[in-house]
Structures are given as structure tokens and as C-alpha cells.
């Protein structure tokens, strides 16, 4: 950790930026004001869910690189419910929207998962290709089906008020998605560490051959792990629609997929570590945005810090092995 900050600091200094002030901005923006903290929590929600959607299949040593597509499928699914049934009362519409979104994400992942199960096609490839298909779908619904003519950027018309997630704090606004996300993370942790299916999942990843010999349906476990991963990303998409945007916006997937993968890898697949890493990355992301505003340091600078953290974490494994 420390080494990556030093390395990135030297790089920043070489480019002529004020290094101590830059780091103060990156690290403390989240904790200085209530607004900064809420911004961090809002980033934390999708990051946590996307990191889990990568980490759960990773436990079975399957790589889900399709979180972006699954998030968008979830967003489109929940927005469809929110727009088409906008007259329904909130106690029906909100859960229906969230559930449809989660299901859509699961379906989006189910295709690559089934291709792996049935034909043995490498899941890295198919999950990625599904991302690009989802971009086209989002563009289609935001420019043709539910286009908002008032918006300059491809955007859909808003969902019904009944589909909005309630606010926990009204100013600065923090929606109830944080409770859902943390609840899901705890549930996933108990599923993996305390249930038979979770144990079989870990065993499959640790040694597929031994698992197969001991009667674990290895291929079915991989199928289910990928679908569960898709459901988590779909849930993230549904929460983004119901809690943050209240509509579909092109580009709403941001860079959550990449950061989710990064978080999963830094946590080295450990489900318990994922929320803490996700929160730290959310702090860095919010800090980097402030840095761009105040000191004109490009946003991507923080990627280099994050990339270096990842490299050092991975290297520490090698050192420990010796």
C-alpha cells in the first residue's frame, strides 16, 4: 500500500504537482464534509455489488468480466417496470422493479454460463461480448423506445415515483440502497462460509478434479456461480436506477466493472475483505474527482495508484510463498 503511494507520488511530483496537497485531497475529501461522505457511500454501493459479482464466480475460479452488461441489463429491466407500470403503488412497484432488475442481470449472465456448461466455451470471452451487446440495447431503449426528447444525451423518460428507493437522509441525499447492498454482502458471506453449496463452490475453485471425484457437480456449481454473479450486478443496476438516476442514462455503468474486478483481485477473492477494499476504492475515486476539480490532475491518475496497489498486493503473495 505504502509503496504504491510513494511510487505514484514520485510520478505526480515529476509532473510538477504539489504532492502533499494532492494526497490530502485524495484521502480526506470523503471525511471532511457530510456531502463528501455521502458521495463516497453512493459510489461504494455499486462498487461493492460489482466486486461481489466478480468475486463469487472467482471462488469457483470462473472469471465474470461481464458485470457491465449485467448491470445495464438490470438497469433496463428495472426501468422497464418503473416506466411501464408507473401507476402502481410504491409497496408493489419498488420491489417489483428491484426484483426484475436482479433477474435481468441473472438472465444476462445465464447465457454465457450455459454456453460454458453445455459447450465448454471460455466464460471470459462470452461475458465480455455480452457487455458490447448490452451497450447497443441501452442505446436503443434510450434513443428509440423510451427517449426523453428534452435531454441532449441519450436518456430515457423517468420512472414512476413509486419505483424510487426511499431516502435515509434527505440532505445530502442518501438512498436506502446502502442497506440493501450491505445486507446482500452479509448474506453472500454466510452463504459461502456457512452452507454446503458455498463450501462446494470454494472446493470447486480450489481443486476441480478432487471436487469432481468427491461427487461435487463441478460444472453445475460454475453455472450457478456465474448466474449469481450476474444477479448481483443486475441488482446494482436496479439500485442505480431506483436510487440515483431515476431513469436510464447512456454511460451510467461508469467504470464500475473495471473497479469491481480490481477490488476482487486486491481482496484476493476473499469475500470478507471485499467490502473494506470497495470502501477504500470509493474513497480514492471521490478524492480523485475532487483532485481533478481543484488541482487539474487528470482523473485517471488514481487508476495508476490503484493499479500499483494491485501489483504490490499480488507481489506480496509471491514474497509470502518463498
Amino acid at each position: 500500500m505504502g509503496a504504491s503511494f510513494v511510487a505514484a507520488g514520485i510520478f505526480l511530483g515529476a509532473l510538477g504537482f504539489d504532492v502533499p496537497r494532492a494526497y490530502a485531497t485524495i484521502l480526506f475529501t470523503s471525511f471532511r464534509t457530510p456531502n463528501g461522505f455521502v458521495q463516497t457511500l453512493l459510489k461504494f454501493i455499486p462498487l461493492l455489488l460489482l466486486a461481489l459479482s466478480f468475486t463469487v464466480p472467482l471462488a469457483a475460479w470462473k472469471f465474470n468480466i461481464g458485470g457491465e452488461g449485467q448491470l445495464l441489463a438490470g438497469a433496463i429491466g428495472s426501468a422497464a417496470v418503473g416506466i411501464l407500470l408507473s401507476g402502481l403503488p410504491a409497496f408493489l412497484l419498488l420491489p417489483l422493479g428491484i426484483m426484475t432488475g436482479t433477474l435481468s442481470g441473472a438472465v444476462w449472465a445465464a447465457l454465457p454460463a450455459w454456453l460454458l456448461y453445455r459447450f465448454g466455451i471460455n466464460e471470459i470471452l462470452t461475458t465480455v461480448l455480452m457487455n458490447f451487446i448490452s451497450f447497443g440495447l441501452l442505446d436503443y431503449v434510450t434513443t428509440e423506445v423510451w427517449r426523453d426528447p428534452a435531454a441532449g444525451h441519450p436518456t430515457s423518460i423517468p420512472i414512476g415515483a413509486g419505483a424510487h428507493l426511499p431516502l435515509l437522509i434527505s440532505s445530502p441525499p442518501l438512498h436506502a440502497g446502502i442497506v440493501v447492498a450491505i445486507g446482500v454482502a452479509i448474506a453472500i458471506y454466510f452463504f459461502i462460509s456457512r452452507t454446503t453449496a458455498g463450501y462446494e463452490l470454494l472446493a470447486t475453485g480450489a481443486n476441480p478434479r478432487a471436487s469432481l471425484i468427491h461427487g461435487i457437480a463441478v460444472r453445475r456449481i460454475s453455472l450457478l456461480a456465474l448466474i449469481l454473479g450476474g444477479a448481483l450486478a443486475g441488482l446494482a443496476g436496479a439500485i442505480e436506477v431506483a436510487g440515483v438516476h431515476h431513469r436510464l442514462i447512456e454511460g451510467m455503468q461508469s467504470n464500475y466493472l473495471l473497479l469491481g474486478i480490481l477490488i476482487g483481485l486486491i481482496a484476493r477473492g476473499n469475500i470478507l475483505a471485499v467490502p473494506f477494499v470497495a470502501f477504500s476504492i470509493a474513497v480514492l475515486e471521490v478524492g480523485a474527482r475532487a483532485l481533478q476539480r481543484t488541482m487539474m490532475v487528470p482523473l485517471e491518475m488514481v487508476f495508476i495508484i490503484e493499479g500499483l496497489i494491485l501489483v504490490f498486493v499480488l507481489l506480496s503473495d509471491v514474497v509470502r510463498r518463498r
Binding site: L265, P298, F303, E306, G307, L314, L315, V318
Partner: peptide, 27 residues
């Protein structure tokens, strides 16, 4: 040399390449 997992390293390099491409252009 370090015998680390190829997919993990590949994904890390994918991330770094993507970040580096935009960063260099902006700088």
C-alpha cells in the same frame, strides 16, 4: 518467473493499459 496466475495478471495488465491510454493522452 514468479509463476503467478495468468488470468489474474492479464486482467491487471488490461486495467493498467486502459488507464494508461487515457492518462497519457490527457497529460
Amino acid at each position: 518467473t514468479l509463476k503467478m496466475d495468468q488470468f489474474v495478471i492479464g486482467l491487471a495488465l488490461f486495467f493498467i493499459g486502459l488507464a494508461l491510454s487515457t492518462l497519457l493522452y490527457k497529460l
